[in-house]
């Protein structure tokens, strides 16, 4: 399909979308823990042997873990990292940090969001509530400023965080990149406003007319989106409400260190059914 002249968005295969991510890029990932993450896209980054990526996400889990396992990550900026459910810590991520193979910038979820808000708002930093008394402030050399309007209160300010690319997995998108999600949007809205480029991976394409009937349901307008790809079941082994639940046995298999990563990648839905254009 040729680029849509009005927006520059193109519907492309998942492999082509991943190919647009250069080594060393700063990539923000949507979703939260095992829910509606762009996991098919993440696995495609691994298949293409990307290196030195910076991963930005408030609550990554499977995604950052598998990227660390495959050696794709140099740096993480994250709030809380875990597999969740009953799975506990993310083992390959944990080892990567403990052995200092990746650099971590530890945030609270909302300080990371404040940095993203600064980027989205076009300002160099953003105040955030709380943080008082936390060692995270000194660790990250965050500044505190006194209310210039004289309340006497102090507020912590977080420097702008501008990802090169935000990638979100959505329930449906139009060929122009307009994207809708069901259930919570997690942090996807602010990620798509903060990043330089936005890639949308959709469970399915929908007719533009259906979006035009209910434009208020659209989370991301297509003009912000540079590329769209279709990957049914692409949030596997996580959930994509209301289509499918977490595949807990598959997560257990993934966490079994005796099983090779390649077997997991081959089992993924996008490997069985290459993403359609």
């Amino acid at each position: 399909m040729p680029p849509t002249p009005s927006t520059g968005t193109t519907v492309i295969p998942l492999a082509d979308m991943a190919a647009r991510v250069p080594d060393g890029a700063s990539v923000a990932l949507g979703g939260s823990f095992l829910h509606r993450g762009p996991f098919a896209f993440v696995r495609e980054l691994i298949r293409q042997r990307k290196r030195d990526l910076e991963i930005i996400k408030q609550s990554p889990g499977y995604d950052i873990d598998i990227l660390c396992r495959a050696g794709c990550v140099a740096r993480a900026r994250a709030g809380i990292v875990a597999m969740e459910g009953n799975f506990g810590l993310a083992p390959w991520y944990r080892r990567a940090v403990e052995t200092q193979r990746i650099a971590l910038e530890e945030h609270a979820c909302m300080t990371l969001t404040a940095g993203l808000r600064a980027a989205a708002f076009g300002v160099p930093f953003q105040p955030v509530g709380g943080v008082h008394g936390s060692d995270l402030a000194a660790l990250n050399r965050w500044a505190s400023i006194t209310d210039p309007y004289g309340s006497g209160g102090d507020v912590w300010v977080i420097p702008a965080i501008r990802p090169d690319i935000a990638v979100i997995h959505v329930n449906e998108a139009t060929e122009h990149g307009d994207a809708r999600v069901r259930g919570t949007s997690h942090w996807d809205r602010i990620l798509t406003r903060a990043a330089r480029q936005v890639f949308v991976v959709a469970e399915a394409l929908a007719p533009t007319a259906a979006f035009e009937d209910r434009p208020e349901l659209t989370l991301v307008p297509g003009f912000l989106v540079q590329a769209v790809s279709v990957a049914p079941n692409g949030a596997w082994p996580g959930s994509c409400w209301p289509r499918y639940d977490v595949d807990y046995p598959a997560v257990e298999d993934y966490l079994d260190a005796a099983r090779p990563l390649d077997a997991h990648l081959e089992r993924a839905p996008e490997a069985a059914e290459p993403a359609r254009v």
Binding site: G79, I80, L89, L104, A108, C109, M110, G130, L136
Partner: peptide
């Protein structure tokens, strides 16, 4: 041991 990290606490606990 690298634990999960900041999460909600630093912002929600004081507020």
């Amino acid at each position: 041991v690298r634990l999960p990290g900041g999460g909600g606490g630093a912002v929600m606990l004081p507020t």
